[in-house]
Amino acid sequence: MSLKIMILSDSFHLRTEAIRYSIALAKRLDAVLVLLILLPFELTKKTPGSVNTVLKLQTRAADAIRQPISDMERSGVPVESTIRIGNPRSELLKFLAESGKFHSIVWGGGSDSINEKSHWTSNLEADVKYSVLVPFIKPEQESGRRSGRFSQQRRVRKE
């Protein structure tokens, strides 16, 4: 039974370092990659044309992840992908309940948004039993200082 590593994002953009790290980790652990894109959207009966909007989002997301998926496949790691639209936290929990166990979750979405306390991933560790790994390029390899929840020490999200 293969281990599964999830790359999780809440936008069309997937960070390069997250893709690189997920591929490297999957190769080391002989795992398959599961790319999960959660696009925030509140579907209500009152929203005009909401079904069309959902379909457009779906198509745009599928286009955006085509290249990363092809990169992953080229590296020899099996990859599956899913796009969910709705409340990201709720959709993630439902996806985890449906999909069985993952070895790790790698955050592939924006690094600035996740740094905010109001972000939907805030306190996610209370609901999700996995470590959510956030890869960053080492400070010596990029200019500028990081700030926010990950500023001082690895592993701990700032209160």
């Binding site: 991933t121 996610l124 790994l133 956030v134 890869p135 960053f136 390029i137 080492k138 592993r155």
Partner: peptide, 18 residues
């Protein structure tokens, strides 16, 4: 060693302290 070890920092929010 794999390049990610020297080029990337891995941070995590996990359940320690919970």
């Amino acid at each position: 060693l794999p390049p990610d070890l020297s080029e990337l920092d891995i941070f995590s929010f996990d359940q320690s302290g919970n």
